[in-house]
Design a protein around this nucleic acid. Structure first.
Length: 565
RNA sequence: GGGGAGGUAGCUCAAUUUGGCGGAGCGGCGGACUUUGACUCCGCAGGUUGCUGGUUCGAAGCCAGCCCUCCUCGCCA
């Protein structure tokens, strides 16, 4: 048994209680049941971590089960990506890979059983009529005129439905429950519908398909699931879930509902995500700005960070919205421990050290990760002409800015102390090059014998040794905390952030980054965490900025500007 | 409007089972440290526990009434 992560929650408490009362013979067996009709997103990660995490904690098992009862929406492509994603997140269903479609035969037998016991009937009402007969939230429904057909007639008709004698939607099999129930789900719900569609696994074997409600609990039962964990909107379905397994007299798992994940500045609706992809607002399902796990992975987030996040947010029945910043906190926390530090300049500005010998190159020793000494050190070449970050020089520095400016001295990390002696401007008046002198007594960045101190240390890359790269900076895809909050007549795309992607082509990297493999992660010192994008080619590295470092200076500057306004 | 589920710092959650001084993480603010304005560490602020009444020596918790939010009227899941 693994120790629980974070404080307990109501689902764990239920399991603990069930273990105490021996409700399921001491077993804990959960399942993750995605419908293979889209890509998994961060919201699914919460469910995956919950189901696999809880089982692991109590020495139980978790099944991966594809809920594939609707042949019109489901595809093998999604099955593959879902399996890959669950594995990437770090979970293992071992040999327990199932499909609801594996149970179509058994489900059909059970449907016959309910017909024989008079609890299900074939209904000839059209979809439109069914809706009218259902009643409303406040008015009870009316019973279908086909409700009291004989068992023999129902049996015959249902078998002919299966045999393909009727067109799509011509008849349905319905459970005979209570058309006056205040719970609409209990008003004779449809169990089977006719759909002459090819199924991704069963092909054209079937032309009738079970509805979710008649398939899910039964699949759970077949797999001897103990705790069937799903989201809040299924609370009203639990009476039906219970009704089916009770009437069938089969093993009865317990359905438990929890709140789905919501994140600020993030959309987690499959439909809207699909719109973003189809209308070209992003480059695909794995665009690093997407909340899909494929996108998040490409962005450079780690499975560990996502798992820690999911453990920290807890589980409850409250509908809330988690701040994106909390997810980012866990990403930074994890990357801080494991990402190798390197120096890279993403907006280069030439810096010439006038008193440094022309042609001289020194190999400076740099620490790979101050958080983990086992990662060792490396050599970084230093020379007379360097690149520094444009942001690290101000000709006219505002107060509290203590980086480089005319006459001021800073430390070049692992290099030397340098003092700015002049600038070169182009015809537009922009600074294109700065000149400095260095103090040879500060080699390696060490403080000089006279005890002189500088207020700032900046990063740099030796110009003749620099490796060029493309860097992609990302910002929130939406400008509003709730992307669906729109004015009249607008849809969520009106809240798209026009600056969510910025591509920088002339970045300069220290040479140790040559040949960095796809997906490898680094901290570009003082800038943030970056990872190598699969778009990289041998001659052209492409980096994604996973996340910027926390930036106190940016905060101060923003406050100064905001204060004056 | 029927039914279901919720409401505790800015956000997410504890404390409720057995009534007994309402805490944590994140965020914010301030400081220490620092060859990353990072990390780490320390401190501070922030609550009419949705509201009103009741029971009680004592209520976030128990009782009554009310308010607000979310889910639910697919042959989707």
């Amino acid at each position: 048994m693994n120790p629980p992560t974070g404080p307990s929650h109501f689902i764990r408490d239920i399991i603990l209680e069930d273990l105490k009362t021996n409700k399921f013979g001491g077993r804990v067996h959960t399942r993750f049941p995605p419908e293979p009709n889209g890509y998994l997103h961060i919201g699914h990660a919460k469910s995956i971590c919950l189901n696999f995490g809880l089982a692991a904690e109590f020495g139980g098992k978790t099944n991966l089960r594809f809920d594939d009862t609707n042949p019109e929406k489901e595809e093998t492509e999604y099955v593959d990506s879902i399996m890959e994603t669950v594995k990437w997140l770090g979970f293992d269903w071992e040999d327990r890979l199932f499909y609801a479609s594996d149970y179509f035969g058994q489900l059909y037998e059970w449907a016959l059983q309910l017909i024989r016991s008079g609890q299900a009937y074939v209904c000839d009402l059209t979809a439109d009529e069914v809706r009218k007969y259902r009643g409303t939230l406040t008015e009870p429904g009316k019973e279908s005129p086909y409700r009291n057909r004989s068992v023999e007639e129902n049996l015959d008709l249902f078998q002919r439905m299966k045999a393909g004698e009727f067109p799509d939607g011509f008849r349905t099999l319905r459970a005979k429950i209570d058309m006056a129930s205040p719970n609409l789900n209990m008003r004779d719900p449809v169990m089977y519908r006719i759909l002459h569609a090819d199924h991704h696994r069963t092909g054209d074997t079937w032309c009738i398909y079970p509805m979710y409600d008649f398939a899910h609990g039964e699949s759970d039962s077949i797999e001897r699931i103990t705790h069937s964990i799903c989201t809040l909107e299924f609370e009203d379905h639990r009476p039906l879930y219970d009704w089916y397994v009770e009437q069938l007299g089969i093993y009865h798992p317990q359905q438990i509902e929890f709140d789905r994940l919501n994140l600020t500045y993030t959309l987690l609706s499959k439909r809207k995500l699909l719109t973003l992809v189809q209308d070209g607002h992003v480059r695909g399902w794995d665009d690093p700005r997407m909340p899909t796990l494929a996108g998040i992975k490409r962005r450079g987030y780690t499975p560990e960070a996502i798992r820690n996040f999911c453990g920290a947010i807890g589980v409850s029945k409250t509908n809330g919205i988690i701040e994106l910043g909390l997810l980012e906190h866990y990403v930074r926390e994890d990357l801080n421990k494991r990402a190798a530090r390197v120096m890279a300049v993403i907006r280069p500005l030439r810096l010439v050290i006038d008193n440094y010998p022309e042609g001289q190159v020194e190999e400076m020793e740099a620490v790979n990760n101050p958080e983990d000494s086992s990662m060792g050190t490396r050599k970084v070449p230093f020379s007379r002409v360097l690149y520094i970050e444009q942001e690290d020089f101000r000709e006219d520095p505002p107060k509290q800015y203590y980086r480089l400016s005319p006459g001021r001295e800073v430390r070049l990390r692992y290099g030397y102390f340098v003092t700015c002696t002049g600038v070169v401007k182009n015809e537009k008046g922009e600074v294109v090059e700065i000149h400095c002198t260095y103090d040879p007594a500060t080699k390696g960045g060490n403080a000089p014998p006279d005890g002189r101190k500088v207020k700032s240390t900046i990063h740099w890359v030796s110009a003749p040794h620099a490796v060029d790269a493309e860097v992609r900076l990302y910002d929130n895809l939406f400008t509003r905390e709730n992307p669906s909050d729109t004015k009249e007549g607008e849809d969520f795309t009106a809240n798209l952030n026009p600056n969510s992607l910025e591509i920088l082509r002339g970045a300069k990297l220290e040479p140790s980054l040559t040949g960095a493999p796809v997906e490898s992660r680094y901290q570009f010192e003082r800038l943030g965490y970056f990872c190598v994008d699969p778009d990289s080619t041998p001659g052209n590295l492409v980096f994604n900025r996973t996340l910027a470092l926390r930036d106190t200076w940016a905060k101060i500057e923003k406050k100064e500007k905001g204060g004056k306004a």
